[in-house]
Amino acid sequence: MDFELSDEQRLIRSEIQDLCDQFGDEYWREKDMQHEFGWEFYEEFADGGWCGVTIPEEYGGQGYGVQEASIIQQEIARSGAAMAGTSITSHHVFSAAPLVEYGSDDHKERYLPEIADGSVMVCTGVTEPNAGTDTSQIETFAERDGDEYVVNGQKIWTSKAQEADVIMLLVRTQPRESNDRFGGLTLFFTEFNKDMDSVDVSEIPKAGRGAADSNEVWFDDFRVPAADRIGEEGKGFKYLLSFANSERISIAANAVGTGQAALETAASYAREREVFDNSIGTYQAIQHPLADSWTKLTQAELMIRKAAWLYDNDKNSGPEANAVKLRASEDAIEACERAVRVHGGMGYAKEYDVERYWREVMINVLAPISNEMVKNYIAQHVLDLPRSY
């Protein structure tokens, strides 16, 4: 593989940087403090055609791969938008992937063009209060009723449910069986909004990403057309799992971008802030932690490129995708904490934004899967050690 970005990839990065330059730290700081969705940013992103980055051209998208999508996500985060900015945009890249791969022609025609042009907002309903890491414990149930399914249950951590028009929804259509824990899980891609009588949406107050809501969602006799089922009944987890590595790569790109934003802010402050008649950037106690974090984030960025290349070329990317999610998330938290320390007491103040980066980047060690489970995966599937859970 060639680590050099192509001319087209460099152009993508440049255009995203130009777009993000319209929305600086002040914009995201205000959105975070007011807990307001970043609609202005989203609309510019959609107008630029970026919502359809991985959607096939025949459905109005650009037909790019995870490599290009990860470049976009990294640059959004690096601009100061951090995890809020990437959360607003990433579901258009990845939540539609199972529909693209496994949906019927009619199903794709009904939804993909509007997702690609940004007129439709997507959310994802998978996690439940009793089914986080262990997806097999999902209890939300869909019962067949003629040409429809009737859904009852609860989802949690459903990002953008306040704004969404459609949802990718994983439910049970058969009871859980001990010999096939993931059988009976079915995936839907269907119309959804918080104003439906059969849906109740409640926002979850959280530490970061104030500009991108996370929610609990309750379904009470929520009717879904059978035509909105993705693929076969009972194979939803298989469909969802096939895109897990792309999500891990995306999370790594988000983390690296946020860590880079923190480092750049800290280095700028260190050049200007004077203590004991010198800029603090002259002191090795300031220089060395920032330099160390730069090396770690740069290594993670290179591994993102490799993992994305493997994924886009239909090669096994599992070890690399999981490893870079682990390393990028941990190294980004360290970079953000170091940026706060460089600012001293002002690092705790909102006006310098490093505290916002620090709060937002924490989510990457927890989701979409914890780093402890990533280590379990590597131990079992790479090192051939016994399953430990």
Rank of each mutant, 00 (worst) to 15 (best):
Q17L: 03
L19N: 10
Y27L: 10
D32F: 11
F37H: 14
W39M: 09
W39V: 11
W39E: 12
C51K: 04
G65P: 13
Q67T: 15
Q67D: 09
I71K: 00
Q73A: 09
I76K: 06
S79H: 06
A84F: 07
I88S: 03
T89V: 15
A96M: 05
V100R: 05
E101Q: 12
S104H: 05
K108R: 15
L112S: 04
G118I: 08
G118F: 01
C123H: 04
C123N: 10
T124F: 01
T124M: 12
V126R: 00
E128M: 01
E128Q: 03
S136K: 12
I138C: 03
I138H: 02
G146R: 05
N152A: 07
I156Y: 06
A164V: 02
E177K: 11
S198I: 11
P205T: 14
E216Y: 05
W218N: 08
D220E: 14
D221N: 15
D221P: 07
P225M: 04
K238W: 11
L240N: 11
R248W: 00
N254F: 04
A266P: 07
E274H: 06
T282P: 05
Q284C: 06
A285W: 07
P289Y: 02
S293R: 15
Q299N: 12
D312N: 10
S317C: 06
P319V: 11
K325T: 11
L326F: 02
R327F: 05
D331F: 01
D331R: 12
A332M: 00
I333A: 03
C336Q: 06
R338Y: 02
R341S: 04
V342F: 02
G347R: 02
E355L: 11
Y357L: 02
V374K: 01
A379M: 07
V382M: 00
D384Q: 14
L385C: 09
S388V: 14
